[in-house]
């Protein structure tokens, strides 16, 4: 079952660090090579992969994922072809696989139909970035009935009250947007991140994963000391885009990120203040 697979992943990762969740635009560069990209990520140590159904108007995404989305759509990506890709990858892994896309493709496909087909293709969860908790009701109902985990979002601007509501709407993990802005590389993690994640912990007993703007193994290491999961997308898609066909640069980067995420520095200061002591803070959630 889907939410369980995610919980188990966080539990296994917790003693020494966090889980590494990678993103791949489905059918980028094309349907066949896209499956190789996802397999390479898993082989190099990704604990879970979000497979994106590209959308024509990705307002939460920066230049890299905008480009891979356009390219994937030109290569013929559809909801069905991405679900088919997920099914193929599922044949070779037991690790969690999620679908990430914007609301309109899901709405157009039919919420129930989408959730059921995604689940039967082997997806564990669904991540939709343009769906604040106020609008999540119908999709959450469809996911619940299909056995698909839901992922709600929070950001540094989210009020305590809405944090609580987001945590309540999530059955997978809470996606913490590290900073204001679209997806893509930043020079460093924002200085307010430890405070933001500490605030999230106060209001959410579910696992929390941090994403947006995390592009280097070092940033993964820092983030892993504060969260249960670290999400990386643009940096990996850039590695795929810039290669001449070899997936070696991607594999190397994922492997370094996996190493950094699974064993953040012991001396990391944030660890005590944010994570507290004595086991994963979301144990009560399980």
């Amino acid at each position: 079952m889907s939410a369980e697979a995610l919980r188990e992943m966080f539990q296994v990762a917790a003693p020494s660090g966090a889980a590494l969740i990678t993103y791949a635009t489905g059918c980028y560069p094309d349907r066949k090579r896209s499956a190789e990209v996802v397999r390479a990520m898993l082989a190099a140590g990704a604990d879970a992969v979000e497979i994106g159904v590209p959308f024509s108007d990705p307002v939460m995404d920066g230049p890299v994922i905008q480009k891979t989305s356009v390219a994937a759509l030109s290569a013929g990506a559809t909801v069905d072809s991405v679900l088919d890709l997920l099914r193929e990858v599922r044949g070779g892994t037991a690790r969690p696989l999620l679908i990430m896309t914007y609301y309109n493709p899901v709405f157009r496909y039919g919420l129930e139909r989408f959730a059921h087909r995604a689940h039967s293709a082997g997806a564990d969860g669904l991540v939709v970035p343009d769906l604040p908790v106020e609008e999540m009701g119908p999709l959450k109902a469809a996911c619940d009935s299909a056995g698909l985990a839901t992922v709600a979002f929070c950001a540094p601007t989210t009020s305590p009250q809405r944090l609580g509501a987001a945590a309540a709407a999530t059955t997978g993990f809470l996606y913490c947007v590290s900073q204001l802005g679209t997806t893509g590389a930043r020079e460093s993690l924002p200085p307010g991140l430890p405070g933001f994640l500490a605030r999230v912990r106060e209001h959410a007993s579910c696992p929390i994963a941090v994403g947006v703007g995390i592009s280097t193994p070092e940033q993964c290491r820092e983030a892993a000391a504060m969260a249960d999961g670290v999400i990386v997308g643009s940096a990996l898609m850039k590695a795929v885009a810039e290669t001449d066909g070899s997936l070696e640069p991607l594999s190397r980067l994922v492997s370094e990120m996996s190493e950094a995420t699974h064993r953040p520095r012991e001396r990391e200061n944030h660890q005590q203040s944010v994570r507290g002591s004595g086991g994963a803070p979301w144990n009560a959630f399980l």
């Binding site: 970035p129 343009d130 604040p132 009020s159 947007v177």
Partner: peptide
């Protein structure tokens, strides 16, 4: 409705 990324809700 309000179908926007969470950072805009506030």
């Amino acid at each position: 409705g309000r179908f926007v990324p969470e950072p805009l809700m506030a």
